[in-house]
């Protein structure tokens, strides 16, 4: 099976958006779009599912909060209770106001870091990762649309030409 793909390059985000809509209307599957900056509405036009990262962040925050509660309770109340400044550590609830800053900070710490790590893992970006954008211009001012070819090269090329692509390349993908 040949892994031929078409790379259509655009030099304007508005033209790209129209092109995406036209290609979708012609019932072709767009494999990927590479853009130099976030183009608003592109994910909807491509039919991408909304990201659930915000939900994970919320859950990570809850984890952080629970961890802070467990940690303050274990260290201050259970394992080594002390009487500091006439305020003995007998019960967590009564000492809770002093732990609010810790609880808040750990909530944010967990939510922020774990969400970013999840983002990096899901989008496959980390140190020493090779970049995968097929054309270096896509981080500058060009927008690249990648479509797999299934014996319809001519038809696709014509369609893309019509949408205002500045360059169209057919490439064998390995």
């Amino acid at each position: 099976m040949s892994n031929k793909v078409i790379h259509a390059l655009y030099n304007d985000d508005d033209i790209l958006m129209d092109a995406v809509k036209k290609v979708k209307a012609a019932h072709h599957h767009i494999d990927e779009v590479f853009t130099p900056f976030p183009v608003h509405g592109l994910d909807k036009a491509l039919g991408l599912a909304p990201t659930k990262l915000a939900i994970t962040a919320f859950l990570y925050g809850l984890t952080g909060l629970s961890f802070a509660i467990w940690m303050t309770n274990y260290m201050m109340i259970e394992d080594w209770p002390q009487d500091i400044g006439g305020k003995p550590n007998f019960s967590w609830v009564e000492n809770m106001p002093a732990f609010v800053p810790i609880m808040f900070e750990l909530t944010v710490f967990f939510a922020a870091h774990l969400m970013v790590i999840t983002f990096y893992m899901r989008s496959r970006i980390w140190p020493f990762k090779e970049a995968e954008n097929p054309d270096v211009r896509t981080t500058d001012d060009h927008f690249l649309m990648e479509i797999s070819v299934h014996d319809n090269e001519k038809e696709l090329t014509a369609l893309l030409q019509e949408t205002g692509a500045v360059e169209i390349n057919v490439i064998d993908k390995h």
Partner: peptide, 12 residues
């Protein structure tokens, strides 16, 4: 970090 600028990456 090998940033490629996919539509999904930008959404995230």
């Amino acid at each position: 970090f090998g940033w490629s600028g996919r539509a999904k990456d930008w959404q995230r």
